[in-house]
């Protein structure tokens, strides 16, 4: 159920993000979704890629400070209120979202939302009970 997200620490330097994307390109790594959180002097790039294991190794070898984090990716119908239904269930059970970002998956045209929460196990059971579809890691990487 857990999807591996790659986080990369990026210092505030022109072209650093571009260098990173070149490394991914040269190693045939494809980005499924990404989010760039920035503060005044550094950024953290978070992304879902087709092969997180290889991406983590490659980035390490090319001098990027990266980390692997377990996240959940849930499938939500692409219509008004879709996300609200999911968050309602989570809020009712007191689950906080640390951060999230979304993309539209190609096959079914549904929205896929990447979420980082503190207690993954509990979130999975709460969402499953509430009838929310949680995507399998392999599905996400292959999207």
């Amino acid at each position: 159920m857990y999807v591996k997200q790659i986080s990369v620490f990026l210092e505030n330097k022109a072209g650093r993000l571009w260098e990173l994307t070149e490394v991914l390109r040269d190693n045939g790594l494809n980005i499924r979704a990404l989010s760039l959180a920035d503060t005044t002097d550094f950024g953290i790039l978070r992304m879902i890629v087709n092969d997180p294991e290889q991406a983590f190794q490659t980035l390490k070898e090319t001098g990027f400070s990266s980390a692997e984090t377990d996240v959940l990716v849930v499938e939500i119908p692409d219509r008004p209120g879709g996300l609200a239904e999911v968050l309602k269930i989570m809020t009712r059970d007191g689950i906080n979202v640390e951060y999230m970002y979304a993309f539209v998956e190609k096959k079914k045209g549904n929205a896929a939302v990447v979420m980082r929460v503190e207690d993954l196990e509990r979130t999975i059971s709460v969402l499953t009970e509430g009838g929310v579809t949680i995507l399998k890691a392999e599905e996400v990487y292959a999207m």
């Binding site: 986080s7 620490f9 503060t39 953290i44 978070r46 400070s65 980390a67 692997e68 984090t69």
Partner: peptide, 15 residues
């Protein structure tokens, strides 16, 4: 310079 192994992917930690 941060020490690479100390990065766990969280902005909060760095702040």
């Amino acid at each position: 310079e941060i020490y690479g192994k100390m990065f766990h992917g969280e902005a909060r930690e760095l702040r």
